[in-house]
Structure formats: structure tokens, C-alpha cells
Write a protein that binds this DNA or RNA. Sequence first.
DNA 1: TCCTGTGAAACGGTTCACAGCC
DNA 2: GGCTGTGAACCGTTTCACAGGA
Lengths: 213, 213
Amino acid sequence: MNRRIPDSTVRRISHYLRALEVMGVQGTPTVSSEELAQQGGTTAAQVRKDLSHFGSFGKRGLGYSVPELASRLRDILGLTCRWRVVLVGAGRIGSALFEYPHFARRGYDCVAVLDNDPEKIGMSWGPVRIRPVEELELVVDALKVDIAILAVPAEAAQTLAERAVAAGARAILNFAAVQLRVPAHVHVAYVNLVVELEALSFAITQNGKGRRK
Amino acid sequence: MNRRIPDSTVRRISHYLRALEVMGVQGTPTVSSEELAQQGGTTAAQVRKDLSHFGSFGKRGLGYSVPELASRLRDILGLTCRWRVVLVGAGRIGSALFEYPHFARRGYDCVAVLDNDPEKIGMSWGPVRIRPVEELELVVDALKVDIAILAVPAEAAQTLAERAVAAGARAILNFAAVQLRVPAHVHVAYVNLVVELEALSFAITQNGKGRRK
DNA sequence: TCCTGTGAAACGGTTCACAGCC
DNA sequence: GGCTGTGAACCGTTTCACAGGA
């Protein structure tokens, strides 16, 4: 029940929650740390340690109640309210994200979409009209945006991040292939396809001695 | 120059390479570990330690030659050959990926696209025709695929991963929100939007005391 | 007995600090 | 003097092992 939670713990808890939700649909009443570990790709001791950061949710000898633990994990992850998100960049990745069904279902409301392409500005994506990127500060401030998603070219990301933060954004999900410099109170998550692909080609090169013949 | 390279090191090297490529275009001849660290969002000691796993590429008192180090890092990451990739899932994320300009430019050739939607099968994406997902084994085997990209629903991912591996794939980039179970020699990279978003909502909830009023 | 919760030990990655070479 | 390369110290996470409650 202490402070300073490892980032790895938070990510695993997100996985545990998803496994619990599947079990909930299937009607499984209780689950052991061992079973959760298998779903989450980790160990039973790790599951128990992760959960112990936040309290004692299980019953010794019995395990965890699936609906109760799911509810507690939703609380911990901050999924009991809806978050206001602005999407910056209405390109391919932006549109894929916008239509991602889990996105709205899991509590994230895309309250605005911005782009700098005159061809796109004014278009409607469902209920949302694409606005010029100049309105970033206006949107973040007036619509009380919590999270800015940057799906823009690498060169533009740093400036846009600074502008979003200055206007009040508290977290950024960055798809651009650059490391962002932001104040310590702002949280950044990275989705970097180039890094992931290069990690794979590195691993194959090391192990498998080059590509397939 | 030893074995067992931390995953974190590989990812940082990918960042260093991108920074070096920008410097190369700008004509910067040499760079210090301090400068590289700033671009990569880390420390000078970390840069030197990362590089020391693979050899000694710098000159004491002077720094690193930008083009030479870039070339060495490309070797290390396995970017000197082109990798054959199959894309499984021709939905929003799949199409965003397929059109991602860096994808082909950085050495990844998407040799086939598969889907299970009869509406999509037979459509052409540029030079590639979308094939039925039943042909996964055929494609991986005949086209000597190295990397399978799974942009499919979570329920389908595990089975498709096993099929791709059985047919000879050596690495998987998984966009589905599940942990995959694969043999140890197969490398998996994850891109999980739900986890990233939940890590952000957790961070805001902890620090900022809930969403903006 | 079964399975959780948790201190303590083990491990591995990061940071430090300095020797060594330009 | 400046900057790299690297063993050693440090520190945070994971794993172990067991006490304790159902």
C-alpha cells in the first residue's frame, strides 16, 4: 500500500484487468494468482506483488473474486471516469485510432481532431469536425482536455507537445518517433513502430543468423 | 563486446540511430555521448555503456564519427538487408501500417496481406492483393516470411501466431491486446494502445487527483 | 490443505567515477 | 584538456520462501 509504483506493474495490471473481464463474461467466479499469471504472461508471485502495492484483494486459500478484483483494478487505473482526449493529426494512424472500438468503450472521449492539411480541415469524422491545428490551445483549454494524442510527423511533435502542455494537457500519447522533453508532471506514453520493428530485426539477426534463405 | 544485450539498450540504440541520421543530413561530422544522450532522452554514461556492448566506436577526446557510428548501428540492428513481412489483418490499423512511409523505406517489404473478410479478399493495395487468411502457412513458407504482423482481434491472435510460427516465422509484431505464448526462439514485440492509455490514466489519477474540472 | 501477502535474497540494469587514449 | 570505455557501486524490480488466514 506504499507509493512509487513501477511502470511495469501498471502495465501488467492493465493486462490482468483484461483477463478478468474475459473471465467475467464467461462467468468464472474466482481466480488464483497462478491463473491470472498465465493470462498475463507472468508469474504468480509477480501478480501477488503487483496487487500488494495497492492493498489486499484476495482471500487466502481461495483466491480473488473476479468481479471484485476487476472493479478494484478499474479504480486503480482510473477507468471510472471518462477522459477527454484531443487527437492531433488526422492521417492514417489518427484515423485508425479514432475508429478503434475499444477507445470510446474504455472511457476515452475524442472531443476534437486537429490537422494542418487544408484538404482535411472542415471534414467530419462522425460527430467531430476536423479543425486547424492552430486551435490546439483553444481546444485543450476550452474543452478541458486531459490527454493529447500526437499522430504527427517527428519534426512537429516536440512543438505540439509543448503547446498542448502549456494549454493544460497532463498526458501525451506520442506516435512520433522522437523522445519528447516535457515537464516532470506531464506523463508521456510512446508507441514507436520503428523501434519495435528494429528490436525484432535485431533479435532475428542475433539469434537466427540473418534472414531466411 | 559480450552477449545478453538488455532490451532497453536495443531500443535506445534505435533512437540513437535516428538522431544520427538527422545529424547526417545536417552534415554534422562528429558527436559526443553527451549530445547523443540529449537526443535520445538519456544520459551520456548510458550511451557509452549501450555502445560498449558491441565494441568501441568512438575516439577518446573527440567523440564519434556520425556517418561511421550510424553505419555500425545499422549493422547491429540488422538493417542492412530487407526483411519480408506478412500483414495479417487488413483493417484500420493494418492499412495505416501498410501505408506508413518509413515501413518500406527502412527495409521492410510487405510481401502479402491477409484477411478473413470476404469483402476485402481480392482487393488490391498497391501491388499487393489481399488473400484469405487460410493461406497464412502457404505465404509464410513460400515467400520466406521473416516477420508476421498481427493486426487482428485479440481472440484470433494466439492461433494466428502459432500458425505463423509453425510455418517458419521468426518474429511477430502484435497489435492485439493479448500476451502471446510462443516458443523461446520466436521474438514478439507488442504495440498495445489500451495498455498505453491506461498507463496514462493511472498516472494522471495518481498525480493530478483526477481529471480536469 | 490451499493460496494469499510480504519481508528478504537475488538479479540485472543504471549510474558513478576514473583510467586511458586522443 | 576532453571524451571514451569500463569495472564497481548502487538501486529498483523480480523471485524466493514462508508465515498466516480461510
